[in-house]
Nucleic acid binder design. Structure first.
Lengths: 137, 137
DNA sequence: ATTGAAAAGTGTGCGGG
DNA sequence: CCCGCACACTTTTCAAT
């Protein structure tokens, strides 16, 4: 289904999703038209789900990045999911197996902001917080 | 340092990092030239770190996505970090506080692949695995 | 900092191997 | 599936405000 050329295209876009068809084609090598056809197919099949961005939150004034896992109280899943959109601090939230139900990446200004966020969370369940130290990969 | 226009630009690029300067400018509104200048500055300041891609791993034949946290054995951090590049299954690895040292996102074909991967990991430490069920945000 | 304008480069639609 | 062409649009550079 996916050949090596598709994988190479995905790899290039992973490194720079703003790369032009011409640029990608030079690295394969393949004509810009063919690169475009393949990318269109990858988009239609939803193998490519989105083109997005990595930002440095610390340089944006958000010095604390944390993982928070939460063990939701019985019956709180729906209200928690409904509340997700109202918290810009939550950059990612994922349902997982295990004693905690949800894994979140959360971005905060400082310790006080973290405290307020956790105080809010304990309405929904029992949170466990891990500070992010550095990205290895 | 960052005004509302910069934040809006980042928001738009977050939703679609292939958006043209003209497109972004229409949403602000601002001329394409000004959008470009601002984005260039954000790149120079490394507030924008990378333009990247979200793919559907299950549609690429990788049906298992998991979080694995590992409590590294004493003295194993350096060799583990050096080994990271040789495992394409590891899509992300982050040093964290708490009883585990590293949090990883790992993408695998099936249960057998997961088993082999965990067998490899126990050379470095004690892993804890959580299956990813669905992305809420 | 923002803009518009000209030249170079790219995306898009389509025809054909 | 791959390619090239034509045309519209975009990026890039630059001078002016």
């Amino acid at each position: 289904m996916l050949d090596k050329i598709d994988l190479k295209i995905i790899e290039v876009l992973h490194q720079n999703s703003r790369a032009s068809f011409v640029e990608i084609g030079k690295l394969i090598p393949l004509s810009a038209s063919s690169v475009r056809e393949r990318i269109q197919k990858l988009e239609e099949l939803e193998i490519i789900k989105a083109y997005t961005l990595k930002v440095d939150y610390s340089k944006m004034g958000y010095g604390l990045e944390v993982f928070i896992m939460i063990k939701l109280f019985s019956g709180k899943l729906e209200s928690f999911m409904a509340a997700l959109d109202s918290f810009p601090e939550i950059k990612r939230a994922i349902r997982i197996t295990g004693s905690h139900n949800i894994h979140m990446k959360v971005v905060l200004k400082d310790q006080l902001h973290l405290q307020r966020f956790i105080d809010m969370l304990i309405k929904y369940g029992e949170p466990t917080t891990q500070l992010i130290l550095s990205e290895l990969k």
